[in-house]
Amino acid sequence: MKIQLKYIVFIAIFLFMGSTGKVFAGGIKGTVKVKGLRSPANVLVYLSKSPDVPLDLKRARFIMDQQNLTFIPHVLPIPVGATVEFPNNDEVSHNVFSLSRTKKFNLGSYKKGKSKSVLFSKPGVVELRCDVHAEMSAFIMVLKNPYWAITDDRGQFQIPDSTYFEKRGIKGLPDLEPGKYLVKTWHEKLKSKKKTVVVPENGTVSMTLKLTRGIPGVLYKR
């Protein structure tokens, strides 16, 4: 009798969670395969359009660090409306600036231990430079919606990527609503690719993207 009760409780919990959609939430899983690059890591995979998702960015912390004459990370995706901090943790002064049409700013030179921040309110690619060190460059990808992922060392990704957002102080990223989506890629040295996928009512859809070396396109066409 006791055993039967256990099974009933287990089935009830299973059904309950299924009905809330949390266990079998909508999402996109996939793998990026690349030709002409050593690693399929650090490819930005994103949705060109999605339903509007309000994000609470009050506690969000996006950081573009400066160490050993390098911007870290080299590519930083952020949602529109996010603020990025630019701490200088290097031994020499740096002068972060951008003349990109998406966001123009110039933080001037500042020393180790200091930090400045910039708000990004328009979607697009922002090319960062240091006015003193020619080798320093990085990209901030300002995205229209939070449905993106950066591929890992094996080229795998999952959208939505709640872990990425939680690490940066954004919680409660909703799962993808079922429907048809256009998935696009961006990598500094790879030709951009797009592919349409259908996210089912329950569960995730899997996909594979094969990329070749080339010039990436713009994030969003008008």
Partner: peptide
């Protein structure tokens, strides 16, 4: 202006990655 005072030496005699560690 943030660029006021930038000199030739600032860019053409600055550190390079190949020289690191500092």
């Amino acid at each position: 202006a943030p660029n006021k005072g930038k000199k030739c030496q600032g860019c053409h005699m600055s550190w390079r990655k190949e020289m690191l560690p500092y």
